[in-house]
């Protein structure tokens, strides 16, 4: 690991050098744990928020995290130079948006708090592809919009903009991020895709808005995971067709209209 950057509490950014790992696709994740700590027992899933190839051929990945429990706490407590286990890249990312049939028109990216970590590589990919997107960033408070400046600059490069809301009104409009999303769609923003990552309630609401307005989209979901690579079968996501899919393999990114929210 290269360094741990303390962001405004309770957020943190880990930069990890991984010797042999394929670059992650937008929406893919890695399983990580603190160094030499027997507890908590299982690794934790982290979206690859950012990545760059180092000159020696290794890959440097950035993991944007929020201390919630023992697993994230152990990671935030890592020291620069410590070796930590990394397994990845894992899962299925934002395929249909990045290189799928809907590769035209504008996109809306909707993040709730730390869910922004799951949209980092996607925002970069869209910016590289010159595809315009607006970034909707909601949180409880201003501190939860921890990477607002990054997403403001990326969306701006594509001719789009950053829209913020907070529940306490400390940044952007007071309220939920779905309110300006709906307003923009009604006003004719011309989105052909909406991609979201955040709390379950937010993603369910975005799925509803997308369905009502006939916009396709995807969500990077999250469930408790045992292994992250398809062995434990613990991370079932219930689909509309009544079946289950594994968050770690068929997901974490699913079409908005296939998940039973």
């Amino acid at each position: 690991m290269l360094d741990v950057q303390a962001l405004p509490l309770p957020y943190f950014l880990l930069r990890v050098r991984v010797a042999a790992m394929e670059p992650a696709e937008p929406g893919q994740f890695v399983m990580v744990a603190g160094a030499n700590r027997p507890e908590p027992y299982l690794r934790r899933a982290f979206s690859v928020y950012d990545q760059e190839a180092a000159s020696d051929g290794s890959l440097v990945i950035s993991l944007l995290g929020k201390v919630i429990g023992r697993g994230t706490g152990a990671l935030a407590a890592c020291l620069p130079g410590e070796r930590i286990p990394v397994l990845g890249p894992l899962g299925t990312g934002f395929h249909s948006v990045v290189d799928g049939a809907s590769e035209s028109g504008r996109a809306a990216l909707v993040a709730g708090g730390i869910g922004s970590a799951g949209l980092g590589l996607l925002a970069q990919a869209l910016a590289r592809a010159g595809r315009s997107f607006d970034f909707f960033y909601g949180g409880r408070s201003a501190e939860d919009l921890v990477e607002a400046e990054t997403f403001r600059l990326l969306s701006k490069r594509t001719g789009g903009r950053l829209v913020k809301t907070t529940e306490d009104g400390s940044a952007g409009e007071r309220g939920l991020i779905t309110t300006p999303l709906e307003a923009e769609i009604r006003a004719g923003a011309g989105y052909t895709t909406v991609c979201t990552c955040g709390p379950h309630g937010l993603m369910a609401a975005v799925a509803g808005i997308a369905a009502a307005s006939g916009v396709a989209g995807e969500a990077a979901t999250e469930t408790p995971m045992g292994c992250g690579y398809g062995a434990c079968l613990g991370c079932a996501v219930t689909l509309k067709n009544g079946g289950y899919a594994l968050c770690c393999r068929q997901g974490p990114v699913f079409r908005l209209d296939e998940v039973a929210w």
Partner: peptide, 23 residues
């Protein structure tokens, strides 16, 4: 078999609980 509905696993001290349901 499709297995049990989520939530299927819970981490505990030094281990985990599972209820996969023989998927």
């Amino acid at each position: 078999l499709a297995g049990n509905p989520p939530v299927r696993i819970a981490e505990t001290r030094g281990g985990m609980l599972n209820s996969i349901g023989l998927q």
